[in-house]
Design a protein around this nucleic acid. Structure first.
Lengths: 135, 135
DNA sequence: CTTGACCTTCACGCCGACGTGAAGCTTTAG
DNA sequence: CTAAAGCTTCACGTCGGCGTGAAGGTCAAG
């Protein structure tokens, strides 16, 4: 497919797709006219790229990773086991980021859930906190 | 306590603690000398502030939120229910961010877990993908 | 012919909320 | 006395990876 269709199907702008090629993230074939000719699997590839970019993986690491992925999505290609350490590092970094966000979300959620929604609950709340809430 | 001790106990720099005051996030009492005099509960407050900042909440929202929190950490103070909508919006934004990160992490984790760790498993892997892996 | 899709290249924008650096002075503790 | 700790104020740094804008031209289909 050509770039316009891929853009429509992935939500990426055409400009971004050309940029991804520039960064080595996509290497579409070329039609005789010079038009880019993307494989159907590139729809999924773009999804992976955008997800990994959004998660903070540097594009050069993604560029190294993509040729190691087979379209079954199952494991790395031969010769790519050397990428496991950086991938594990990224995975752990993402986990740490999730944990930090979850800590904040838990704080917000507890505040929200424990705040009275109407005046009757509110009076009970005040009674419960008589010691710490000034009159 | 004074600023140095709070810095040690929270991991924030003294400079950052003064900055938080500048932004209305902390309002320590003052000793006759002019030194800042932090309450013991400020240790926990700084933790909350840093967590919420790290989660992307704007400082002005945190500044509005803090006086609504009682040190029991249980619900919002009276008169603060109007903050619930923005807090819920932030919570939902954080949830979306976590989901995005989790999508990427799942992708990485599946790749890592399914990649053979030694040559014997690797041969089995190759046999399993005979169709899609070029000789 | 005309229109729309696509091509390349050069250059720029982000981008402001968070935090830091340094200078010069005062206070505290020993 | 002295050194460490604290005070204020002015000004600066980030900050580079991701993506965009515009210009000027080619290609394909009706």
């Amino acid at each position: 497919m050509r770039i316009g269709e891929l853009a429509r199907r992935t939500g990426a702008t055409e400009r971004a797709l050309r940029y991804y090629e520039e960064q080595g993230l996509l290497t579409p074939a070329r039609l005789p006219s010079g038009y880019r000719d993307y494989a159907p699997s590139d729809v999924e590839t773009v999804g992976h790229v955008r997800s990994l970019l959004a998660a903070g993986l540097p594009s050069h690491l993604i560029a190294d990773l993509l040729p190691c992925m087979v379209d079954t999505g199952d494991g790395l290609m031969p010769g790519c086991r050397s990428m496991l350490p950086p991938l594990e590092a990224e995975r752990d970094r993402i986990t740490a980021a999730i944990d930090a966000l979850d800590t904040a979300r838990t704080l917000l959620t507890e505040l929200i859930d424990r705040t009275p929604e109407d005046d009757s609950e509110y009076e009970a709340w005040v009674a419960r906190h008589a010691a710490s809430v000034p009159a």
